[in-house]
Design a binder for these strands. Structure first.
Lengths: 364, 364
DNA sequence: GTGCACCGTGGAAACGATTACATGATTGGA
DNA sequence: TCCAATCATGTAATCGTTTCCACGGTGCAC
């Protein structure tokens, strides 16, 4: 905001004079400049008219005193914190990490700071963070609800603080939603598996309480039935988007009298767990069983074998969500956005027909 | 803090009466309870003596009005925000993600919120976050400096705000440091490589401006010389802890007339890049070249082959750092801590002599 | 019965900024 | 020359809390 005016390296050596004075306020600057606090405030914020001489005096006084505005006081007065909250389901999930990073980047570009709350896929932690962020009087909230029924989040969505759902949402809320649509890509994936000769397909789902969890299994089921394939209950493993649940579900698949030809893990962590379970049995991917995932992460090209997956435009989602929220904050209309996900064919479901690229890390 | 007094699910359904009233302050509560704001404040904070009847009136009024304290105002008055800042070098690096997670967890347990700043290994971004966090009047700062010479960070370390370095530090600052010592584990690694018959060893280093970058290459060099091995300049690849630099350095190694027997990538992202470069050449790990890394992440057991690495006690580092900072904030002494890292032998450097465990994901 | 300690409560002053309004000076046009 | 408009500046209210201090009342000890 202030621009890089000060030369980078002199700060530490030259400002040794202003020791002892604990913290300098606008009052101290006013005193040093021989002006009122009102003028100092105006000069620093540069919005109202201030004479050049006064501005110069203020700037030099502020500089030599090492003045740093107290945003706590400013926020109290202006009722704006220039901060947005981001509540995500699991920081350890690289998908959300990338989302958080792009959110922070875009927010910074727009002059906002971001406070991240990690719900760890637990409803009560999500509630804690939502409450804590609201008390902090953030200007807006970005939420990817771990639990579809969290009353506190529901309240927040209908309260005065602008809120945008990202990735997941709560049906029935009128808050805008920014998300990826995986349906098309899932149909492509199923067609890919079918083309490779796989007929007995299985899926590891996310929590039914999440929209993404439901969407992925429904799209999978629909795509199967279009091809005349059935999805028996034994081929549906209930997961929770964490690695351990992927491992357990896969073990059950492998215990079946006729094991599936291929398994679709609906996020990257459960795919990790599935890989783990398969490897422990001494089985091979894709010869003994195929594996596909949702979410692309930098490691997928480097596992053995490289993993076929559905990639979301994660960074774009974060950027769009922040812009939607910023618009909402400045009184604009609610804007929802849906971006398409797409299939990345690698080698974990069998050798692809064409010479597909193995796909490097898709870090943009 | 407040304890889970309210029943979890009634909130959304019962509080529909208090619509319209934009935001309710302590003044409104006082009015509703027929008491002064001073008494309401005391009742809510439960520190000073308040009669039982008054307390009951306050609590019921606050509940029915849906009162939420304004922490901005509170912070202005008390000069404490119950918030700590965490500035890390790269959120996309799973090591720092795990660190951030454990920091947030421990901080929450101690009643603090955490604001994370991602420096992206760029000095000016680090400065931006440090400045922004200080203006926000956080109670304390946890920093893993991307750049060893950032004047702003240096100032902060000597300023009034308590600061603890975590992972990396700035030599010469008297702020406490919480970090892992990789020297012992690096010596173990070199012995392991030597035992497998590798003699021409190479290293991909981190930025020389970081303490961890320097420590790892120095320890490696020392361990080599103890065994009578040399480390020619051609076997030292300058990296920056990001994947791309690992790829480039490895390509140069592979272009050498005599390529190294094994490469040690000093963080997990550069190991990813190295793996990429090796695979593109159609070479095999460990048959054509061995690969070892620093930092264990959940994917390492699942790459082809599983990667031998040095694991840091990451979660413990985060916890200890938060506790050290909290102590500092409450006026305690500066406490530095060094925890040991240790070698995890897998298969990326050659078949180990003994039947070592392949090592599951070491998520604790 | 008087004095003293204590307890619950309210009034009011902070905290550090922004900003509506007032004020004095300057300027321009008639 | 005078009035009004403009401009730079200062005064003071305000945001929502916490907390110091004063005050009246009660109970206990003398």
């Amino acid at each position: 905001m202030h621009g890089p005016e000060a030369s980078p390296c002199t700060a530490h050596t030259t400002v040794t004079e202003e020791v002892s004075s604990d913290v300098v306020s606008i009052k101290d600057v006013a005193e040093a400049a021989g002006l009122s606090v009102a003028t100092v405030s105006r000069a620093l914020n540069g919005q109202s008219a201030v004479s050049d001489t006064a501005r110069a005096k203020v700037l030099s006084a502020a500089e030599s005193l090492g003045y740093r505005p107290n945003v706590v006081a400013r926020s109290l007065r202006t009722d704006r914190t220039r901060t947005i909250g981001l509540v995500i389901s699991d920081v350890l999930n690289p998908y959300f990490t990338e989302l958080a990073r792009s959110v922070e980047e875009e927010a910074r570009a727009l002059g906002y700071s971001v406070i991240i709350g990690n719900a760890d896929e637990r409803a009560e932690l999500e509630a804690h963070h939502v409450r804590s962020l609201l008390e902090r009087r953030i200007d807006g909230l970005l939420v990817s609800p771990a639990d579809g029924h969290s009353p506190l989040t529901l309240d927040a969505a209908e309260g005065p603080t602008p809120l945008v759902f990202v990735d997941r949402w709560i049906p029935g809320c009128d808050a805008p939603v920014v998300r990826a649509d995986g349906r098309g890509a899932i149909r492509d994936l199923v067609a890919h598996l079918y083309g490779l000769g796989h007929r007995r397909l299985a899926i590891i789902t996310g929590p039914a309480a999440t929209t993404t969890g439901r969407e992925r299994v429904e799209a999978f089921r629909a795509a199967l039935s279009e091809l005349g394939l059935s999805l028996p209950e034994s081929h549906v493993g209930q997961g929770d988007f964490q690695a351990e649940s992927g491992r357990l579900a896969t073990e059950r698949f492998l215990d079946l009298p006729e094991r599936p030809d291929a398994v679709f893990a609906t996020d990257n962590l459960m795919a990790l767990g599935a890989l783990n379970a398969i490897r422990v049995r001494g089985l091979s991917v894709p010869d003994d069983i195929g594996l596909a995932a949702f979410d692309d992460i930098p490691w997928f090209p480097h596992t053995a074998p490289p993993i076929t997956t559905i990639a979301q435009p994660t960074a774009a989602l974060g950027r769009v969500a922040v812009r939607a929220l910023a618009d909402l904050i400045s009184g604009g209309p609610a804007q929802s956005t849906v971006l398409p996900a797409h299939l990345l064919v690698r080698r974990s479901c069998g050798e692809p027909e064409t010479s597909a690229p193995t796909g490097g890390a898709t870090r943009e």
